[in-house]
Design a binder for these strands. Structure first.
Lengths: 382, 382
DNA sequence: CGGATTAAATTGCATTCCAGAACAAAAGAC
DNA sequence: GTCTTTTGTTCTGGAATGCAATTTAATCCG
């Protein structure tokens, strides 16, 4: 059809339009002009090519039926207008997917990790993405890029991705130089918790929220803070790494801590996923759950009093019933401390924590559609 | 001379230029072009009117003397190019100033509060600013606006300034409608702690820093968080109100708490400023200081692990020797907890906490010179 | 039924702002 | 004295938006 991908020609206000539709749902050109404080003519001009290229779709507005005036046509994002690939790597497995703009996974794959070397992992991940592309028959021009995430904290130079404990032998990884070659498209990276947070921002419980915090419970305790619809990373990308509030030498509400507590009772599990339903009935697990709930209540209170987010979303890879129990406990702990004279932030349950590679797949979307990541020189007119 | 004030015609890149000079010091047009990734021709075109209007001044660059090429001319901000007024109101007094762009107060005034009604206070504040304008003989066209700050927390509708405890009888205050009429120029508002933080950003210890947190110790415990050179307010502007981490029913590191502790020992002081040097030697004050230092250490640890700022700046209206002691104690508490594998944030002493009205005076500067507050329609070129 | 009214969407032209390229100016280097 | 280097300027063109008039399709109402 045409040579250039449908997202490559978006102007700054073009991104704002996509962003507004994503946040506030399908709406007319006139609504967009009012919301974004730009002229209707600008909206018409910018949306024209987007509709032609299949990025947006038009539909009549039923809610305005029976009212005077020219009937409005609602603009919606066509989920299949652009797709992205997501790669999640942990010490045990590689999980990949092709996802559309609605966050639906068109295809997923899970591959065991044979060898933890950087080369072996990236070779396998690249091959997996290529297989998924083949299987779904996606037009490569519609692929906006590939997101890659893996657990671990950052350290030192923020332009480079950190080496992490589980992958000690990896080289010093630089996204552009070391990651991109394996996937044949632009590559973005964040650690597992921050990528999972992006999935909640674009496809999950926090869709369109401007300011919220994320708590990620896996083997460790991770997290992220979203400020004005972008991740706030802080110094060395250490912001919202809540684990730092719980010293490793003491009991903490992490998956590894649960495994340690179980092991001390003689129940040795290798992975979190080995935790079966009947384990949950054990007194030792009940006890851990109660203590972890207290610690999470305290954590949410601290988050509420520091970031004052609109919401706190909690997700992770612990057993679903553990997650549910912890979230219920935090919700019950209102009013989140004394001295509160306004309503506390909403406590939300993550919706996309079952598919960690979806978070990675959200990274290219952020890069391409978010106004704040618009590249190049800047001008503003008034 | 000319009819419009020198700051009113700044384009978006014009603001970026001012901002870059403020952050990185005097520099040549070529430096600015490289730093901001815009063309030298653009810098020439934009700086021309600024120099002509007296907003910028030119000087030869001694550091490039003896080197090849056309000698560079350094551009500096002329502190007197634009001035602002600042008004700080507390239950006991009204403090006002006229300040220039360097944060020098050209004139200050302190007036006792006769009557805490909104009308009386604003009448007196407006008259005071008018007297200062008269005294300094400032050209009204050079006045960018007036900042107004007073202590208290926000609640409810963030478009309106909150009613606070000390001023319970005030009406529901709306900045545009209720504050502007008294001062004859544009008015901006933040509470005392957040305004003080703006003074540190523009004139003090954190000049030009992108991300930092502020701890404000007065009768209460306030604070602010700066993200990308703008205040991050959060839900209901409650972000970084650190006092929320210390329930009022228990000992907390606030000035009011110190007065309460002293009162319990039979030493009844009415105001913080009544605390004399010899009070500091009392065992009860020593004890309070020690406990408050522990609490501040904990607070800074929490800030470091949540916001991960580049720096934490501590200021307030406590006795200077108390402030110094507390800051020293926090600095000595490195490494700010275990599990830290990168350097902790710098602990800085506020430089402008002696003149609270200067924080208010920084608000119009932020509004006028910060790229992120640029009004009107938006476009970006690439 | 048909003109008046209403609001959305479109079109052509004007304006604003920046990039690009050629050029001018001032200094040291050879 | 000419060449080289770097800063700074000028002028033109292009990209993006605003502005104002116009078209379009629906309801309202006599």
């Amino acid at each position: 059809m045409d040579g250039s991908p449908p997202h490559s020609s978006l102007t700054y206000n073009g991104r704002r339009i996509i962003s507004a539709i994503r946040t506030h749902g399908p709406q007319s050109r006139a609504d967009l002009a009012r919301r974004l404080d730009i002229k209707p003519s600008t909206v018409t001009r910018l949306t024209g090519p987007m509709v032609a290229e299949g990025l947006l779709t038009e539909a009549p507005d039923p809610s305005r039926e029976g009212r005077k005036g020219y009937p409005a046509r609602l603009l919606s994002i066509d989920p299949r207008g652009v797709c992205t690939a997501g790669v999640y790597i942990d010490p045990d497995r590689i999980m990949t997917c092709i996802a559309d703009l609605a966050g639906d996974a068109l295809a997923v794959e899970e591959t065991p990790v044979p060898d933890r070397s950087f080369e072996a992992l990236m070779t396998e991940a690249g091959a997996s993405v290529a297989r998924l592309m083949e299987r779904t028959g996606i037009d490569p021009r519609r692929m906006a890029g590939c997101g890659v995430s893996y657990p671990g904290q950052y350290s030192g130079d923020p332009t480079r991705v950190a080496r992490i404990r589980q992958f000690r032998d990896w080289p010093e990884v630089n996204v552009e130089r070391d990651l991109s070659p394996w996937f044949g498209m632009p590559v973005r990276h964040m650690n597992d918790a921050k990528a999972a947070c992006m999935a909640e921002l674009y496809h999950g419980a926090c869709r369109g929220l401007s300011n919220f915090c994320h708590v990620w419970l896996s083997y460790g305790i991770g997290g992220a803070a979203i400020v004005d619809q972008q991740p706030y990373l802080g110094r060395n990308a250490l912001a919202a790494e809540w684990g730092g509030l719980f010293p490793k030498s003491r009991p903490r509400p992490s998956g590894q801590d649960l495994l340690d507590v179980l092991a001390a009772e003689g129940i040795v599990l290798d992975r979190l996923s080995d935790l079966r339903d009947d384990h949950l009935e054990l007194p030792v697990v009940r006890g851990w759950e109660e203590r972890a709930a207290d610690q999470l209540q305290w954590l949410c209170l601290v988050i509420a009093r520091t970031f004052a987010p609109e919401a706190i979303v909690i997700g992770g890879t612990l057993h679903p019933r553990l997650m549910d129990g912890l979230i219920q406990a935090v919700r019950a702990a209102e009013p989140l401390g004394e001295d509160y004279f306004v309503a506390p932030p909403a406590i939300l349950k993550a919706e996309q924590d079952g598919l960690p590679q979806l978070g990675a797949a959200a990274l290219p979307i952020h890069e391409i559609f978010n106004p704040s990541t618009y590249p190049g020189a800047v001008s503003k007119l008034r």
